[in-house]
Nucleic acid binder design. Structure first.
Lengths: 330, 330
DNA sequence: CTGAAAGCGCTTACAG
DNA sequence: CTGAAAGCGCTTACAG
C-alpha cells in the first residue's frame, strides 16, 4: 500500500501541487503550509515515486557502467569509485559486465538506454568505432574510459598507456636489460595496442631493435600470462626481462619463471601494468606501471555529470599520467 | 526525439493498444496486422519506454545488489555472477557498496526501494536485526547472503561457515598442530562469529583447549591480517598454525610470517577462507576453505525471482557446504 | 481479432 | 502563496 502525493494532499488539506512543491523545495510556500505538509509526509511515511517523476522529467537519476569484466581488480576498483561518486550526486548505478562478449555489448548499451539512464560510462568498450559512433547518435552522453573516440556525445577519460609502457621499458633498459620480451594481450585489437607502441618506442630510444617475435599474446588473465610467458622464455631463453599487459598476466609470468627455474628479478625481471591490488601481494612483489584508478573513475563521473548538465558543450579528452612503482620483481 | 507507441500506431494505422499487444506478444492478432506493426517498429526504431511500463505494471525489471565492499574479490565475484544471472532474466542490476558504513546502509536500502527495484540482494548486511526486520516490513522480497535472519520477506542463502572453519581446524590437527591461532575480524559482531565457533568446535573435537588469547582481531583486509598475525606470533611464538578470517587476512599473515622469518608452512601453517582469486597466486599458494561464490550468487538470484513470482511462499534457508582446498601454505 | 477510456503518480505550464 | 488542468508513455479492464 504505497502512499501517494494525493494521499498526503488530502490529509494535509492542500492541493497535490503544493505537496510537490514541498517535496522538491521549489517555489514560495508559507511556513505554516510547509510544516503541515512535512509533518503529514513523515506521519504517512510518504516517499516520492521516482518512476512517475522520471516519466515526466525525462531524468531517471541513474547511470550505466559497462565494464569488460569485474573479476579483474582494475575494473572492480573503478566500479567501486564510480558507484560511490554517483551516489554523492544522488544517482544510482547500473552495473553491466560484458565478459568480452562483443555481440552482447551492443545489446547491453541499448538496454541501458532503454532503461532511461541519464548517461553511460564504458570501461572500456570493444565495440567497433562504427558501432560506437552509431550508438552515440541516438544516445548521449557517454564517457569512455580508455577509448580514444571522437564524437561530440562521447568524452574520453584515460591514462596515457603508451607512455606507461615507454616508462617501464626505459627503466628496464637503464637497469641494463637489452633483451626484453612483451607479454601482450589477444583482446586488444591492432589499433589499440598502445602498450606495444610504447614498448617499441622505449626500445628505439635506447637504440634497441624491436623484435616482433619477442612479443607473445595471450588472454589478459593469469592463465594467459602464464602461457605467453612460458612460450617466450622457452623460445628465447636469453630474454632477461618481460613487460606484461596487466598485473594478472604479470602474475602468470611470475609463475612461468618459477616453473622454469628462473629467479625473479635476477634471471628474469618482470614488470606489470595497472598496479592493481594483487601487485603488492605476490612474491616477489610486482614492479608495475601505476594507473590511478580512483582518479580515473572520479573524473569519468564528474565529466559525465558535466555533460548531462551541458548537453551542447564538447569536452576535450582527459589524460592521466601513469607512473612506475618499483617493488621487487624488476 | 523518442518514438512512442502512438507514433507507431499512427504510422501503421492501428490503435495504440494493438501496438502494445505486438510488443508484448500478447493476445490474438492477425498475421497481417502483426507484420505491419512490426515493420513500422523496425522502420521507426521504436523502443518501448520501460519507465512508463513500470509505472503501470509496478514492475521495473531491476534488482538491487548491496555488497560490503567490491574491492574484496569475494564480493566482486558474486557481483559478477548476480549481474549476469539477472540479465538472463532480462533484469538490470543496481550495484551499491556500503564500504562498512552502517548509517549509509539503511539509506542505500531505502533509496533502492524508492527506485522501485523488484527485489534486493544483500551480501551481507550489517544492519541490526531490528533495522533489517523493520525494513523487510515495508519492502519485499529480500535475499540475504550470509545473514541468518528469520522473516517471511527475507530468504537466506549462505555457506556453512562454521563448518568450514571446523574442517580447517580438523585438517590442521590431523597434521599434528596443537597450538593454532586465529586471525579474526573486528567487523563481525559477536553474534556472527561463526568462524570462531567452528574453530573452537574443531579444537574441542581434538581435545585441545580453546585459548581466547590465541584469537586476535583485525580489519578484514591484508593490512589487518598482517597486524593481527604479527601480534599473535610475537606474543605466542610457539603457535604453529594460523586460521584466517578470509584470504585477504591470510595474505597479511603470510607477510607477517615472512617478516618474522617464519617459513610457511614449515614453521607456521596458514589457512585462508573463501578461496578467492588471490589464494592461488600467493607464494606459497594458500590452503583455504572454498566457498562456492558462483553457486552462492546464482542461488541468490534464482531465489529472488522465485520470491518475486510467489510473494506468499516462505522459503527455507539454502545452505552450501564449504570444502578445504589444500595448496602449499598448510 | 481490434479499440476507446481510464489511470499509474508525478511535473509542467498557466492562472489567480 | 496556492490550485486545476493537461500530459509523460505505457497497460488494465471492458467492449464489441
Amino acid at each position: 500500500v504505497p502512499v501517494t502525493m494525493r494521499d498526503v494532499a488530502q490529509q494535509a488539506g492542500v492541493s497535490i501541487k503544493t505537496v510537490s512543491r514541498v517535496v522538491n523545495h521549489e517555489g514560495e510556500i508559507s511556513d505554516a503550509t510547509r510544516e503541515r505538509v512535512t509533518s503529514v509526509i513523515d506521519e504517512l511515511g510518504y516517499r516520492p515515486n521516482v518512476l512517475a517523476r522520471a516519466l515526466v522529467t525525462q531524468r531517471t537519476q541513474t547511470l550505466g557502467l559497462v565494464v569488460v569484466t569485474i573479476d579483474n581488480p582494475f575494473f572492480s576498483e573503478i566500479a567501486s569509485v564510480v558507484q560511490a561518486a554517483a551516489r554523492e550526486h544522488h544517482y544510482h548505478t547500473f552495473l553491466a559486465s560484458t565478459e568480452n562478449n562483443l555481440t552482447d555489448e551492443l545489446n547491453i548499451l541499448e538496454s541501458l538506454a532503454a532503461q532511461g539512464v541519464d548517461g553511460i560510462i564504458v570501461c572500456p568498450t570493444y565495440l567497433s568505432n562504427e558501432n560506437l559512433l552509431q550508438f552515440a547518435e541516438r544516445f548521449r552522453p557517454i564517457v569512455s574510459i580508455h577509448n580514444p573516440v571522437e564524437h561530440p556525445h562521447i568524452s574520453q577519460v584515460r591514462a596515457d598507456i603508451r607512455l606507461g609502457a615507454h616508462i617501464a621499458v626505459d627503466y628496464l633498459c637503464e637497469k641494463g636489460h637489452i633483451r626484453i620480451g612483451m607479454v601482450a594481450s589477444t583482446e586488444s585489437p591492432p589499433e589499440r595496442r598502445w602498450r606495444e607502441h610504447g614498448y617499441a618506442a622505449g626500445l628505439a630510444e635506447h637504440g634497441i631493435r624491436f623484435e616482433p617475435r619477442w612479443v607473445c599474446r595471450g588472454h589478459s588473465t593469469i592463465e594467459g600470462g602464464y602461457e605467453a610467458a612460458k612460450q617466450l622464455l622457452a623460445g628465447y631463453p636469453d630474454l632477461t626481462a618481460l613487460l606484461a599487459y596487466n598485473d594478472l598476466m604479470a602474475v602468470g609470468a611470475l609463475r612461468a619463471c618459477q616453473e622454469l627455474g628462473r629467479r625473479v628479478p635476477e634471471d628474469c625481471a618482470v614488470v606489470g601494468f595497472d598496479d592493481s591490488a594483487v601487485a603488492a601481494v605476490t612474491t616477489p612483489a610486482l614492479t608495475t606501471v601505476r594507473v590511478d584508478k580512483r582518479e580515473l573513475g572520479r573524473c569519468a563521473v564528474e565529466r559525465l555529470f558535466e555533460m548531462i548538465d551541458n548537453p551542447d558543450e564538447v569536452y576535450p579528452p582527459l589524460v592521466l599520467r601513469p607512473e612506475l612503482v618499483v617493488r621487487q620483481s624488476a
